[in-house]
Amino acid sequence: MTSPCDPQYAAAGDVGAAIMMIDSRLKGVRDGKTATDPEEQALIDQFTASLGPRGADAVLDGTCTLIYLFMKWLRMAYEDHDKDVIEYVVPNLVATMRMMPKSVRPETIPTMAGLLIAAGTGLSPNLWRKQYGYWTKDEMTPLEVTTFLLAEHINRLTDDPDFATRMITEALSKTDED
């Protein structure tokens, strides 16, 4: 029996825009930026405003697709070592988010943990979240943080600062070829 949260029922969204935003954050942190450059933030804000409601929803869906794909990759990597992805990834990410109270409000952490667990068990994070209503404004930054932390976790595991981004862009390129 399939779940209504099965990924086959989820929209993939704009994965390209979502990975572009996460890659920008990863490179910024790698370059030692602790805050977003005002010029870069203005460009991100302009880009976001140009999307309109449908475009913003597509990027939101794309971000959830990234979470799903990152957790799927992590699940396979941890299973290769007889480890459980939920046991090894979720507590680490939750602890990191708890150390970021300015970016991640404490009341949003359970939702982000739920998204990780949903994806870690093969469910669509977006469809899992939509069971409880539409996304709130307060969940947008924590969602980005969650995606960023997953990508960074993958990059550290592979000892390659661009692995997570490259994995997604290569998958997108193969999809375009097909």
Score class of each variant (00 low, 15 high):
residue 1 M to D: 10
residue 1 M to H: 09
residue 3 S to H: 08
residue 7 P to H: 09
residue 9 Y to G: 13
residue 10 A to P: 06
residue 10 A to I: 00
residue 11 A to Y: 03
residue 11 A to L: 10
residue 11 A to E: 13
residue 13 G to M: 00
residue 14 D to S: 06
residue 14 D to C: 03
residue 15 V to K: 03
residue 18 A to I: 01
residue 19 I to R: 06
residue 20 M to Q: 11
residue 23 D to L: 05
residue 26 L to T: 06
residue 29 V to E: 14
residue 29 V to R: 15
residue 29 V to C: 10
residue 30 R to N: 10
residue 32 G to K: 07
residue 33 K to G: 10
residue 34 T to R: 11
residue 35 A to K: 10
residue 38 P to H: 01
residue 40 E to R: 03
residue 42 A to F: 02
residue 42 A to L: 05
residue 46 Q to D: 10
residue 47 F to P: 02
residue 49 A to V: 13
residue 49 A to M: 11
residue 51 L to M: 05
residue 51 L to E: 01
residue 52 G to E: 04
residue 53 P to Q: 08
residue 54 R to F: 04
residue 55 G to E: 01
residue 59 V to W: 03
residue 62 G to W: 00
residue 64 C to Q: 07
residue 66 L to T: 04
residue 67 I to E: 11
residue 67 I to H: 06
residue 68 Y to K: 06
residue 72 K to D: 14
residue 75 R to E: 15
residue 76 M to N: 06
residue 76 M to V: 00
residue 78 Y to D: 14
residue 80 D to Q: 06
residue 82 D to C: 07
residue 82 D to V: 03
residue 82 D to A: 14
residue 83 K to Y: 04
residue 84 D to M: 01
residue 87 E to G: 02
residue 88 Y to N: 13
residue 89 V to G: 01
residue 89 V to T: 11
residue 90 V to E: 11
residue 91 P to R: 02
residue 91 P to C: 04
residue 91 P to F: 05
residue 92 N to I: 05
residue 93 L to M: 12
residue 95 A to C: 09
residue 96 T to C: 11
residue 96 T to A: 15
residue 102 K to Y: 07
residue 103 S to A: 15
residue 104 V to A: 06
residue 107 E to N: 14
residue 108 T to H: 08
residue 110 P to F: 03
residue 110 P to M: 05
residue 111 T to R: 15
residue 113 A to D: 14
residue 116 L to M: 14
residue 119 A to M: 10
residue 123 L to Q: 14
residue 124 S to V: 01
residue 125 P to I: 01
residue 125 P to K: 02
residue 126 N to H: 05
residue 127 L to E: 10
residue 129 R to G: 07
residue 130 K to E: 11
residue 131 Q to Y: 02
residue 131 Q to C: 08
residue 132 Y to S: 12
residue 133 G to T: 09
residue 134 Y to H: 09
residue 135 W to E: 10
residue 137 K to L: 08
residue 139 E to L: 14
residue 139 E to S: 11
residue 140 M to N: 09
residue 145 V to K: 00
residue 145 V to N: 01
residue 146 T to M: 08
residue 147 T to G: 03
residue 147 T to P: 01
residue 152 E to R: 02
residue 155 N to D: 10
residue 158 T to A: 09
residue 161 P to H: 08
residue 161 P to G: 07
residue 162 D to F: 05
residue 166 R to M: 04
residue 166 R to P: 00
residue 167 M to C: 04
residue 173 S to T: 12
residue 173 S to F: 03
residue 174 K to L: 12
residue 175 T to M: 09
residue 177 E to R: 11
